[in-house]
Design a protein around this nucleic acid. Structure first.
Length: 264
DNA sequence: ATGGTAGTTCCACTA
């Protein structure tokens, strides 16, 4: 079984790339973030003709999430028990969608960005992560994947230059501690063992030619419960999708897809 | 501290 996660930065503007990605990598499940589309705007016909079902959430804001699967899409749930509200409930629900695909429960997550360490959104981000952690404790005993844009870099090796993040989110001790709670509880980073340091970057700012200089960050993470971690046979980042054959990434998302292979 | 680019609900906001 092959699972990927990708912050697509608008599903409508990149539907052709999504369909090509599914076919190029023979994906069974694709987790998407920043879909930026209402339910009635989702371009589904091409996906369905390729044999995929789609579950989506977050239709009325920037950070919608979706699951695309050709191995079943059952028991879809939007959000998790205890997920904190931010504004109205529709907004809060936009950040997590879960479904059972084959024999695995998958979650597509868009962790709040946090904006600035002194912004209320930063407090919301930490609270959101804590509540996800608490809800996820109940899922540890079943085959479960927590994949998506976590909007945090777990270690200094996961950013191109830590001195450039002195007053930034994504690298603060509190965010990293919130993430480490998952590891301490028994979740496993399915990708890091296979792609080290700067080779594991998944996000590069569009400007200042960050991709061309590999000045990126590893913030798109895939965690697995023990039953899933035992099945990983490989993992990689699809930089071709981010950079393109011309090396400039024309028409690309600012994130690259992350792919994980699991033994059947 | 600012600004750069790309996306959207498109001259304002989010990432």
């Amino acid at each position: 079984m092959r699972i990927a996660t990708w912050n697509v930065n608008s599903l409508r503007s990149r539907i052709d790339r999504v369909e090509a990605l599914l076919e190029r990598h023979d994906l069974d499940v694709l987790l998407l973030q920043e879909t930026k589309a209402r339910e009635d705007q989702l371009p589904l016909m091409g996906l369905q003709s390729l044999g995929y079902d789609v579950a989506a959430a977050g239709f009325d804001q920037w950070n919608g999430v979706a699951i695309i699967s050709r191995v079943g899409l059952a028991d879809v749930s939007v959000g998790f028990d205890g997920m904190p509200g931010w504004g109205d409930s529709m907004t809060a629900e936009a950040r997590a969608v879960g479904a059972t695909c084959g024999d695995i429960r998958v979650w597509s997550l868009y962790v709040p960005n946090g904006r600035k360490p002194d912004d209320p959104h930063y407090v919301y981000k930490l609270d959101w992560l804590d509540r996800l952690h608490d809800a996820a404790t109940a899922w540890l005993g079943t085959p479960t994947v927590l994949g998506g844009d976590w909007n945090l870099a777990p270690t200094d090796d996961d950013v191109f230059d830590i001195t450039r993040f002195a007053h930034s989110t994504h690298v603060t001790p509190a965010e990293r501690a919130a993430y480490r709670r998952f590891l301490d509880a028994g979740w496993t980073d399915l990708v890091e063992p296979h792609v080290k340091g700067a080779d594991g970057f998944t996000y590069w700012d569009y400007y200042r030619q960050r991709f061309e200089r590999n000045r990126g960050m590893r913030i798109d993470l895939v965690l697995g419960s023990p039953a899933v971690a035992d099945r990983v046979t490989g993992a990689r980042v699809d930089r071709e999708e981010r950079g393109g054959s011309d090396g400039h990434g024309n028409g690309a998302s600012d994130h690259a897809p992350v792919i994980v292979d699991l033994a059947d």
